[in-house]
């Protein structure tokens, strides 16, 4: 795989030097960031529609926070602090599955429970990470929270690629079943859907995706990228197909614009923040469209 990345980088860089592409392309890390943007854009956009439909918005945020604890554990265990994937995946998957396990066994409504998990994971993660980073590198916390596109490595891209393939392999064939399981569990069971298993698979999928995207977008903002494009798409569509396709489009656009605009204009913005700001602009635009055009108007509840 690494040869392929190298080949893409070299050919794009030479194109940039010939003047066929903007100057930003002469940097390898810009190309890396864009490759990642093309992967996570459609993926987060597509999965985001499921997150919105299943009302799991805050779940991915708590996973993002858990990743901080994961990084801290990784550093403590001696993993490299830029790529502590074993600890991050390990801890986050445990965390996600535990959350779902608890959800099935308490009377608490799921937003309350996720709220509890979210604050606990934030507190533990931030404390541990600050404790660790004081000894290693004071910028770890910043990088985990807001992502750092400049340091995307080939390993990061391999992880992202592997996760993308896995998520597609689970998400596409099980799309209907996962939606039905949350729309009406009783009907889903009659139709032979293993509702509990679907919830676990969905949680697993979101966890993988969140951790893999952490490097680019950062812990705080992964969930924003899952939600905002889907919410924007929802403003202007009335069918599932439009919803999914537009959400993928918005998300990809945000990723690419968020990477390129700060480069082009020399703005000292973290990539994660820039990506979400672009997404937010799209959201505002679609909201305006919805408010302005009569065909989106509907009766108030």
């Amino acid at each position: 795989m690494n040869d392929l990345y190298e080949w893409i980088r070299v050919s794009l860089q030479s194109a940039a030097q010939d003047g066929a592409l903007p100057l930003a392309f002469q940097y390898g890390f810009v190309i890396n960031a864009l490759l990642c943007a093309f992967l996570i854009g459609p993926l987060l956009g597509g999965v985001g529609t499921m997150v919105v439909t299943k009302r799991m918005a805050f779940f991915s945020q708590s996973i993002g926070n858990a990743a901080m604890t994961g990084v801290a554990i990784g550093v403590l265990l001696g993993e490299s602090y830029t790529e502590p994937y074993v600890s991050m995946f390990g801890f986050c998957i445990l965390f996600g599955l535990l959350l779902n396990f608890t959800k099935n066994r308490t009377q608490l409504s799921s937003d309350t429970l996720i709220g509890v998990f979210l604050s606990v994971s934030l507190a533990v993660g931030a404390s541990l990470l600050l404790f660790v980073s004081a000894r290693v590198n004071t910028h770890i916390l910043e990088a985990v929270l807001f992502g750092s596109v400049l340091t995307v490595s080939d390993t990061d891209m391999n992880v992202l690629l592997a996760v993308s393939v896995l998520v597609l392999a689970m998400g596409i064939p099980l799309f209907n079943q996962m939606l039905l399981a949350s729309l009406n569990p009783s009907l889903a069971r009659v139709r032979g859907v293993k509702v509990d298993l679907m919830e676990y698979i969905f949680v697993f999928m979101i966890t993988l995706l969140t951790v893999a995207c952490l490097k680019i977008v950062g812990a705080v903002l992964v969930e924003a990228l899952l939600l905002i494009p889907a919410a924007a798409a929802r403003n202007v569509t009335s069918s599932m197909r439009g919803f999914v396709l537009l959400s993928m489009l918005f998300s990809t656009l945000s990723c690419i614009a968020g990477v390129l605009i700060p480069m082009q204009y020399d703005l000292p913005l973290p990539s994660g923040g820039a990506i979400i700001m672009v997404a937010a602009c799209i959201f505002i635009l679609t909201t305006l469209i919805r408010v302005t055009f009569a065909r989106f108007r509907e009766a108030r509840a």
Binding site: T49, T53, R55, I172, P173, L174, F175, N176, L179, L180, L183, N184, L187, R191, A233, R234, T237, S238, S239, M240, R241, G242, F243, V244, L245, E298, A301
Partner: peptide, 25 residues
């Protein structure tokens, strides 16, 4: 019981319920 503003059409709903492995979108 579902969110009435969701962009799910009648044929989308039928697809979610009856379409098997082919995703509704």
């Amino acid at each position: 019981d579902f969110d009435k503003t969701l962009p799910v059409t009648v044929s989308d709903f039928m697809a979610i319920v009856c379409n098997g492995l082919r995703p509704a979108f």
